[in-house]
Structures are given as C-alpha cells and as structure tokens.
Nucleic acid binder design. Structure first.
Lengths: 229, 229, 229, 229
DNA sequence: TATGAATGAGATTTCATTCAT
DNA sequence: GATGAATGAAATCTCATTCAT
C-alpha cells in the first residue's frame, strides 16, 4: 500500500533549457523563484489553461520578456514545478513505514501524506492535472507516473490477497480505481473548492478516504458476505 | 444507492435557446444535429478545450458561419449536449430498481449504467469535465449536479447505517469519495484511453468498482476488524 | 545561348496551402490579387527582408488577419509570386529563336527578354534574390534554377567551341560568370536604382551586356592575340 | 584596368568611433578583436542579416552587454570590418603593376587579387553585400565605392578604345557589367558555396573570369567580326 | 571592463465572431 | 439558411538595448 502518496506526480522532462542555471546569480534565483511562486498562485487561482504568461509575469512583478529568460513556454515552467514536486513526493512516499505503524494507521498516514502534499502544492497539481488533459506530452507522463503508483498499490493488494484478503478482485483495476478516487477527491476538495454545500473537515475527509480504502481491500470472504438485499 | 448513474451530469440552462429551438425547419434540424454529432466527435477526439469552432464545423461538413445560426458559442453547444444527456441519464437512474435485484446486483447495475452512459456519451462528458475546470458557470453547475448525486448516495449510506452497516463514517464525505472514484475512473478509462500498460476488460472493471463500493459501505464492526498490522 | 532569359527564376514548392483556391469566389480572387500586387510593390520598395506582413496588408488595403486567409507566411506569398513568374519566364525563353534571328541579334534578344522580365517583375525578383540569401529553402531552389540556366548556357558555349570559338575555356564556369553578370547587373540597375552618377539608358545597357557576352564567347585564337602590353 | 581589386569595398565612416578607439587598453583591444573575429565567423556562417548580436557575443565568448562597450549596433561592427578591409584592399590595388606584367597577366592578377581578398574576408563581404540590400546607408556607401571602381575600370576601357579596341561600347556601362560579374561570381562561389553540381577549381574560375574580361574589352572591329549567324 | 538580468517595442499568428451576398 | 470573406483583439515570442553591480 506504500507509494500511495504520489499517484499523480507529473514531471515532464524538459527539452533543453539553455541551462541558465549555470551562472545564476542571487538576483536571478530570486526572479526564478518569483516566477514559480507566481505560477503556483495563478494556476491555483485561474487554472493552468486559463493562465496567460502575462498573468504570471504580473503576479511575479516582472515583465513578460523577463519570463522568457527563465522558461521557454508556460509548459516548461509547469514541468519545472512538477519536477520539484516529484522530488518531494517521492521522498515522502516511504515515510509512513518508518515507524512500523499498524496497517490501518500506516495507510491513513499515506493518504494523509498525499493530501497534505496536494494542499501545499495546489497550484502545480491543478496545473499538471489540467495540462494532462490537453497536451500530449503531459498526458503521457501523467499516465506513466500513475502507472508507477498503481503498480505499487496493486502489489500491496496482491500481498493482501496472499493473506486471504479480498479474494478474486483484480489487483490492478482495483488499484486504478482507488488511485482515481484519491486523486480526484483531492482535486475536488483542494483544487475546486469542495462539494457544494458540504461543510468541510480535513480529518473526517481523511477518515472517509482511508476507511474506504481499508474496507475495500481488507475484507474476507465469509465475514463480509452477510446477506445482502 | 440509486442515482449513481448521473453524478456528473452537467446541463446548464442556456439563455437564448428558446429563440433558436423555435424556428427549426427540417433542414435546420438536420444541420443542428450535424453540429451536435460533430461536436461529440471532436470533443472526444481532441477534448473540449482544444476544440476550435472551425474543427466542429469541418467535422459537420458545414461552414463556420453556419454554426452561429445555431449556437452563440462553443459553450452553448456543450450545454445543449449536456441537457440532452441529462434527460437521458435521469430517466435511467431508476431502472436498476425495476426488477428488485439483490442489493449487490442493483449496485453493480447502477455503476454499469453510469459506465455505459459515459461510454456512449464520451464526447459530451469529456467536454463537461474539461469545461468545468475552466469556466465558472460550468463548474458551478457541475458541482450542483454532483451535489444531487452525492445527496442520493449519502442517503443510501445513511440507510445502510440504520441497518448497522459502516458505523461512524461520514455519509456525505464517503459519498463524495465514491462519486469521485466512479467519475474519474470512467474519465481515465473511457476518456483518456486507460492506464498505461493495463489491458482492459469492461466487466472486470465494473466488478472492481462495484466491489469497492459494496465493501466500503456494507461492512459491520466486528466482521471486518480481523487483526490488522 | 538560349534560356538565358531565366537564370534567377525561383519558385519554391509550397507545403500544402489548404487550397483555399478550391472555392474561391470573385471577391476572394480580388483580395488575393490585391495581396500579390501589394507584395510586389512593397518588396520593390522596401525589399523582401524589410517587408512586414502589416506593410503588405496596408498596401493591399486589407487587415493583417486577412492575409492569413491566403498565405501562411510571407515566404509562401513570395513562392506564389515566384511560381507565377517562373511560368512566364519559361515560356519566354524560347521566343528569340522563333524567327531565326542572326546569332548576335538572337543573343541580344534573349538578354533583353530577361531584362524586361526583371523590370516588370521587380518586386518578386528582388524578393527572391533577397530571400535566397537568408532562407535555406529559397537558396536551394535558387541554386537549382540557376543550375538549369547555366546548363543551357554552357551547352551553347560548347556548341560554339565545336565551331572553333573560344577554345580552351571552361564552359560551365564561363556560363556561371556570364549568368552572374546578367543577374547582378539587372539587380543593380533595376532593383537598386542603378550605379551612382551614371545616367541610364536601357538600350545602351543591353548593348553593353550583349557585346560582352558575344565577345566573350565568339572569339578565335589568332584574331584576338594582337600583342597587348 | 587597375583597381579592379576593390570594386565592392564598402567601409562606411562611423560617427562615434574615435571615442571608442581612443580608450583601448590591452584587454580592451583583445575583446574588440574577439568580437571582430566572431562577427566574421558568424556573418560567413549565417549571413549578416540572420546574425543576432547574441550569436556574435556567443561566438566571441563574451557577454552581449560587453558588445555594447565596443559597438552601438551590429551595423557599426560591420562598418569597422569594412574599414579594415578597405585599407587592405586599397593597398593591394596597385600590386599587379609593380612588375610590369603583360596586360593579360596583369588583369588576371587583379581579378585574382579581388578573389583572394574575398575568400579571406568572406565574413565581411557577405555582410556588406547583404547589408547593402537592406539598409540605406550601406547601400549608398556601397554604390559610392562601386562607383570608384567603375570609374577606374571605365578609364581603362577608354584607354583601350584610344588604342583602337572595342570601338563604340559604352565604357561606364561595360565597366558596370564587368564589375557586377566579378562581384557576384565571387559571392556565389565564395559566399554561397558555389553553383549546384559544379565541381570547383580556383584557377579555372579565375581563368574564366579573366578571359571574359580580356575578350570583352580587347577586341578589334574586323578581327572579331568573323561572320556570325 | 565585464556581465547577469530586465525590458520596451514589435512582429507574427490564432481565432471567435461578424458581415454581405 | 448557408457561406466565403474580413477582422479586432488577443497572446506568444524575439531581440536590441539598458542598467546595476
């Protein structure tokens, strides 16, 4: 069940930025950071697809031309943010298992890790998600990374099956569905402002997610099959 | 659990449609239909956001100018499609209950209904989904309709709780998560071409979704708590 | 010596204009013609490289956006002009030989044909010439067409050599030099406004060119070798 | 016939060079030289019109900003190169006459001198040629210097006529044509990489040029007029 | 002197929308 | 109703040039 924390990571390798980084000076790094921060803000506020370079530049307090000293396109900036995020997300994926938490707690921790990362990285995640809908290279990379996450989840499901849990379910499709749930739930609540007229509570949301996940995987034949209808 | 079949429906009432609808001659209706079909095709192929009016007109074999005899904007056309779809989806929501199927089968039927509708209406659903990301009025409507579906699902969960199932979970947040799963899973598999390197099988996909749903809701305290760790 | 009349022709095959020509209406053809005329004017006045799309559009009395209904780029418009020109130039190359003019007169006629074509097509020829300096695809095509002309001229020189004229000279390099002379002389006088402080007279210019050409080719060993110093 | 060696020289006096030239430290001179070398390279490789200041700076291994410590514009740098070249070319113009070569040899030597200078100074000559097409001040200066060369050539033709050669031809227009030939032939072979599919040989090229030149000028009425047709 | 960074001013290009026939 | 043509209004991107260190 590990790795749950990065189902949507989506860094896309950049062509060949003239490696401005080579001789970057303090001022340069500041400006770059200003553009990244501005992009996060604007992507979170207006969405990636709606964002214009001029909006980002304005939010960064720089000229549009300056933008092109750092990135070739809006997509390249998003890629840079995605890479930053991927590095962080990957490093976080294993954390829950450091302290030998009980299965359910570890799972909840993993879900919570993803959730918190999403919350913190709202801008880039919205951007990545939207970009993946429109631009081929983003979609491909997104599918690739989803693939990694799903493989990890599916592995955990197989392990559970070896212990007699959830017999007969397709591990990969189940992983795909759970991953879709996690990703989209976070998008709705953190990216789109939540469901209409539903008061919100972080902890209860995480409880709901984690419970579904646990119950969906860790059930045994007889136990559950208590007379439907 | 009913109503599952339409969690994402998103028709938005258009301001000026009456005028249009009124004056339809036979020729006019044919052209209109050509535009709708073309839009479904193009939305499914290129996505709503990438679609240009000229693409739709080309696919319809009509001129761009003709488009404006029927719709004011691309968004208006999407709204029309969404309305068509909403009518159908609503009428389908109750079907599973006609024949008093067993609980699990009814649920699987409802999921399958949503899935099949999505498959058939790929174009408009991709369009609705994408439009909701970008344009305020679509997002609001989308949330509204999600709200209806969630309310229905939450009602079913509460009913289950009254029968002693899934004690303690938040019905609305759980409904939100399950709805997110269903919607996004369909989007990925039917709208985006599926997960990378995962062979696909309709029936197994529906099994996976339905099983998660059933297990996530119809569990009892003791039964499930079989030693974690 | 034939074919002299087209050493610089430079049509470049166009990628794939959406064949707007398909349904062109009278108005459309007029606008296209307006853009071509405007381009000739502007290329002749400002040069191809200096010409902006907006200049051409202004000269044509149309909007810039309208330009893009007819051509994808400035280069495409030039190509269209070049094709038009090539058709004309090719058809003119043989004319001098219709009436069995004497050798010298025929040659002068051929030179004059090139000259007159250049004068009439100033705009496109300046454009072609300039474009060939800058853009690879134009240069390649230009070299190709020069090659055709040179081959023809070299053939005429070889024929002269068979008659005992100009023994020992390299036919191809001589053809290249004569062709360069013709082309550049026309460019200077017709494209750049002529030499500084030199009064101009068409007929005398053609006499000078034709005489050089005749004397450079139709000389015999002994005759010329009258002791210089 | 002297002076043939510099028909296209095109130095343009720069307004503000004195200021610059004055303050040269050793380091400064080195940097300046680096920019000049870089410009020659880049002009020869990409052409003057395609060359960006940043290309030149990159080739020089200096920053763009540094460029502006030496020149105000790309044109100013070209002017400086042209002046350098003019000084050299002028000093070379008289060389062929040192040793009292026979007329034909002297002429061939002069042509060869121009050719070799062009080869050595490819970058600036391409630059001058291209700039003259586009920028008024370059064109004017270019015409002026062509004018000088043509005057010298025309003088030689008049001298030949006084000796009974080439009666009746217009000395100035003939000079213009020969000069055009020389200049353009060099541009094609040395600046553009030569004619398509023609193998190249320096000596034969010079032979061809010199022969045309000699035969075009040093012919006598009767001698040459060996019955055409 | 040298240079990283910043930017104004343009030029190209796209596209939804309008108009005349 | 239908459509070829026309266009305003952006948005992207480039590049010469300036500035602060």
């Amino acid at each position: 069940m590990t790795g749950t924390s990065a189902p949507v990571v989506l860094p896309v390798p950049s062509r060949s930025l003239p490696t401005r980084t080579a001789k970057a000076t303090r001022k340069g790094r500041q400006t770059d950071e200003a553009f990244r921060d501005a992009a996060r803000l604007v992507f979170a506020r207006d969405g990636y697809l709606n964002a214009k370079i001029s909006d980002i530049a304005a939010a960064a307090g720089r000229s549009v031309a300056s933008f092109y000293n750092y990135y070739d396109t809006k997509a390249d900036l998003l890629i840079a943010l995605a890479e930053e995020f991927h590095a962080e997300a990957t490093s976080m994926a294993v954390l829950p298992y450091r302290a030998g938490l009980a299965r359910d707690e570890a799972l909840r921790e993993a879900v919570a890790g993803f959730w918190r990362t999403y919350a913190k990285r709202r801008g880039e995640l919205i951007g990545i998600f939207q970009a993946a809908m429109i631009e081929g290279r983003f979609r491909d990379r997104w599918l690739e990374l989803r693939g990694e996450a799903i493989a990890r989840i599916a592995g955990a499901i197989r392990a559970a099956q070896a212990d007699g849990y959830c017999p007969g379910v397709d591990p990969v499709l189940t992983a795909s569905a759970l991953s879709a749930m996690l990703e989209h739930f976070c998008y709705i609540w953190l990216g789109q402002g939540g469901e209409k007229d539903v008061p919100f509570d972080d902890e209860r949301a995480l409880d709901a997610l984690a419970t579904i996940w646990v119950k969906a995987v860790y059930w045994r034949e007889a136990a559950m099959d208590g007379r439907a209808r």
